[in-house]
Design a protein around this nucleic acid. Structure first.
Length: 614
DNA sequence: CAGGGCGAAT
DNA sequence: ATTCGCC
């Protein structure tokens, strides 16, 4: 066999991927825990979109027709989940919770129920703090500012499951450092996962690896509420084969994130050499012949260039060939996206069985426009007193916004410039009575009228103006015929967010990126920079912390080992009086520089703050 | 292939 | 400004 090229691996990062277990069902269960012990499912239109594990034990599954579900399990408890605002709110709340742990702000959400966190910096910091001679008695610092914050852990073992499951730490010398880093990542992941469960009531399935791709895919090995870490060797050499390749090779090609339906079809077709593989009119799952990553990778003539030729087309990114080639080798250098203060677009849509009259259309557009304006007020509006966002995660849609509206002056963090109307026309009936199912959307955009930013009128009133003043005209351009159209979907969106003045990087004190920094990072600025000049901002900082949601308990002093039930050192008494209270405590040690008293495990981290450099 | 989104490519 | 791909 000729020596094939493989893309270079860069495994310097540690990335955690969270996937909340049966998220929609979990949102209802968090509000109403009694559902947990019942077979419980969430319905949208005619299908069960998700169900809890009690329901799955009885034979239910995702994306099942409600009829079938009720037939199989008549006792099933069903809630309607068509209004997704509660899921969006819960998703944001959990995202904020996870984000508070991050030092880098590299925290990226995918859909409502998945989050990646790049914890490379936290892991590197803690690697330096490790005592190699007593790995089993380690302490993971989750704050650079407060050395007491963190948890005790055993750095000589992995938390949760390793991949491969019979992994034993051995092998190449250069892998030992990576092994240790991933172990630290696994313990941090477990810490956050447990905090999510205990403080927020959500269980999650977690993957830990050196890339987004691997972290996401490996998590699936142990679900629900499990975690899995991809261990070295990650690349092959004469003496060892790559765990990454072994892992990814067994996957069906379409299961690889980044390879969607279309790309997978093209690849299957190529490997199966010709046959278009599947029957066009198949329901659910289809019989796409299973083509594994290994089959594609080992297929003759697979390289970046041939893949580019095979896969590029309208709408596909340039360099798709190289990108897919990397994915086939389990290589993914994409960054975990930086948490952003405002979304890049907001859209609202709904689908309809029949929408073909003007009065119906008006009703629909008014409802969507109202939701859109309400969303804009929730996501883009902030208190004007300090320029920081408030991030209300109201459980009841816009009610909080309305209620607090009168109390505090508000300010738009961003003003979308563009309004877009998208429809999905339903194909007319064929002569033979069948209907061609089309999922094609058509859209038209235009300038968003600025009156929507007015705050003196209700969202409802503004929505009506928006419909008559802009949306109807756009609709006519999309559907010039007076009648005859029949829509199966309408989508409204605002895009082209222009950040408003005072939100940019220039205004230091009002920089809204501060909104996304956890307390310790904000506080650190006080310690390492000119303290006196920052004093006027103290109030702002306090506001940031309190306005950033109810998650502050994670940063409280009592978090030390609080979520770990085993092998936690009892260095504090749990009463919150660990600070200098005059009590002498022989367990504590004293910093030789400033005299501060603290447990021994905290001293190394603490003393870093006496260094002029970070 | 349900339903609702998001972001990147035209 | 619009469509595509993906979750």
């Amino acid at each position: 066999m000729e020596a094939r090229h493989t893309p270079p691996r860069k495994d310097g990062r540690v990335i955690i991927h969270f996937d909340y277990d049966c998220f929609y069902a979990a949102v209802f269960e968090a509000k109403n825990p009694s559902l947990k012990s019942l077979p419980f499912a969430v319905q949208q239109k005619q299908i069960i979109v998700t169900c809890n594990y009690e329901a799955r034990r009885r034979g239910l599954h995702k994306l099942q027709l409600v009829r079938d579900a009720k037939r199989i399990c008549p006792e099933v408890v069903i809630e309607l989940g068509e209004d997704i605002s509660r899921f969006r709110d819960a998703s944001k709340e959990l995202y904020s919770f996870i984000r508070a742990y991050s030092w880098s702000g590299k925290v990226e959400r995918l859909g409502f129920d998945e989050v990646w966190v790049d914890v490379t910096d936290m892991v590197s910091y803690n690697m330096e703090m490790l005592n190699q001679n007593s790995l089993a008695q380690s302490f993971f610092h989750i704050s650079r500012a407060d050395p007491l914050e963190g948890f005790a852990f055993d750095a000589s073992s992995i938390a949760g499951h390793p991949y491969p499951k019979d992994f034993v730490s051995a092998g190449r010398e250069q892998d030992s450092d990576l092994t240790l880093r991933l172990r630290l990542g696994s313990h941090l992941a477990q810490h956050i996962r447990h905090a999510l469960e205990q403080q927020k009531g959500y269980t999650s399935t977690v993957g830990i690896a050196t890339s987004k791709l691997l972290a996401k895919v490996v998590g699936n090995l142990n679900k629900p509420k499990g975690q899995t870490t991809v261990m070295p060797p990650l690349s092959a050499d004469e003496s060892a084969c790559s765990n990454v390749t072994a892992f990814i090779d067994g996957h069906e090609i379409g299961k690889v994130p980044g390879i969607g339906f279309k790309l997978a079809q093209k690849l299957r077709e190529h490997v199966l050499q010709r046959p278009a593989t599947f029957d066009p009119g198949l329901v659910y799952g289809g019989t796409k012949e299973a083509v594994t990553v290994a089959a594609v990778r080992h297929h003759a003539d697979i390289n970046p260039e041939t893949l580019e030729k095979l896969l590029s087309g309208p709408g596909s990114p340039h360099g798709i060939g190289y990108k897919i080639w990397c994915l086939l080798h389990g290589v993914d250098d994409s960054e975990v996206g930086q948490a952003k203060p405002v979304p890049s677009q907001i859209s609202i849509e709904d689908s309809y069985n029949r929408l073909d009259t003007l009065p119906e259309l008006l009703k629909v557009m008014n409802a969507l426009a109202k939701s859109l304006l309400t969303r804009m007020r929730i996501d883009l509006l902030a208190d004007d007193d300090n320029g920081f966002g408030e991030e209300h995660d109201s459980a009841n849609g816009g009610a909080t916004t309305q209620a607090s509206h009168a109390a505090t002056p508000k300010k738009w963090l961003a003003r979308p410039k563009t309004l877009r109307l998208t429809t999905r026309p339903r194909q007319p009936l064929q002569p033979d009575g069948t209907r061609v199912r089309s999922f094609k959307r058509i859209s038209h955009s235009g300038p968003l009228p600025t009156f929507v930013f007015g705050l003196s009128e209700s969202a409802e009133a503004l929505a009506e103006k928006l419909v008559s003043g802009a949306l109807l005209g756009m609709f006519r351009r999309l559907h010039p015929e007076k009648s005859g159209w029949n829509l199966s979907l309408v989508n409204l969106a605002v895009t082209n967010m222009a950040e408003t003045a005072g939100v940019g990087k220039t205004s230091r004190g009002r920089d809204i990126s501060n909104m996304f920094r956890k307390q310790e990072d904000v506080l650190r600025d006080f310690r390492v920079t000119d303290t006196s000049s920052l004093l006027p901002y103290e109030v702002d900082i306090t506001d940031v912390v309190s306005s950033d949601g109810e998650e502050r308990e994670v940063c409280g002093p009592l978090t030390v080992a609080s979520t770990t039930t085993t092998s936690a050192p009892d260095h504090h008494d749990g009463s919150g009086s660990w600070e200098e209270d005059g009590e002498t405590d022989e367990e504590n040690e004293r910093c030789g520089y400033c005299g501060a008293r603290m447990p021994g495990f905290a001293l190394a981290a603490h003393q870093r703050f006496h260094s002029p450099f970070q």
